[in-house]
Simulated scan of single mutants.
Amino acid sequence: MSIRLLHPSIQSGLNKGDSKHAGGVLTCKCLDRPVKVKVSTGIAHNHACGCTKCWKPEGAAFSVVAVAPSEAVSVTENGDKLAVVDPSALIQRHACKECGTHMYGPVERDHAFKGLSFIHPELFDSGDWPEPGFAAFVSSAIEGGVDPSEMDGIRAKLREVGLEPYDCLSPALMDFLATWAAKKSGVLQ
């Protein structure tokens, strides 16, 4: 049985990136007037994501997505081509109206991730960005059209390339979200 394409950057294993990667320029897939977004700092929490909201390359079951502080993310060229995909979503994904590539997605509402922007590191102008550390929302790939019978093979392939599959975020991020909620409600100080 062949394994569905996870994502081009992880299918054959993780490319050991530079943990001190200082950002760079993200470029959409347009050949004419591409959108360019500068990320002026390193990224964090890079992971493969199976949710149906994240932008994925053609044929991929997963996206690769990370976060950067929103104040370090700025549109530098052709911002007139951007539109928010879903204004009601927590992550305000700004996508190119021509090629559909999601360029950045800030979280602006009251949430543990407020002040962060989600980006797709494969769009960087260099390939030395930090490798993904886990796979999130793996079961959600079914909602994107993956046959449920493929899931055992997909989870095995994710582990084979070095990504632990979760059906939520990583335990550390889930703890962060729960801590934020507990502090907000007053249960924790």
Rank of each mutant, 00 (worst) to 15 (best):
G133Q: 12
S170P: 08
A89R: 04
H21W: 15
N78L: 02
S9E: 12
F62G: 03
P171L: 11
F137D: 02
A135P: 08
G100Q: 00
E164N: 06
F176Q: 14
H120Q: 11
C49L: 04
V138Q: 03
K157F: 04
K114W: 06
H7G: 00
E164R: 08
G42M: 13
A141R: 00
S19D: 13
S117Q: 03
Q92P: 12
R109T: 13
M151E: 01
C30K: 00
L31D: 15
I91V: 08
A83W: 09
V73F: 01
D147A: 11
V65P: 03
W129Y: 15
L173G: 02
A89V: 15
G23N: 10
S126M: 03
P106F: 02
A68T: 05
K53Y: 14
I10M: 03
V138P: 02
V107E: 03
L5K: 11
I91P: 09
I119V: 13
L82E: 05
R4I: 07
T41M: 12
H47T: 09
V65Q: 13
S9T: 13
S40P: 13
E131Q: 15
G24H: 06
F62Y: 02
D18Y: 10
C28G: 12
G79Y: 04
S185Y: 06
G42P: 10
K183A: 04
S63H: 11
T27N: 04
S12C: 05
V107R: 10
C28Q: 01
P87F: 08
E150F: 02
L14M: 10
A182G: 11
V37I: 07
Y166G: 07
G42Q: 06
V37M: 10
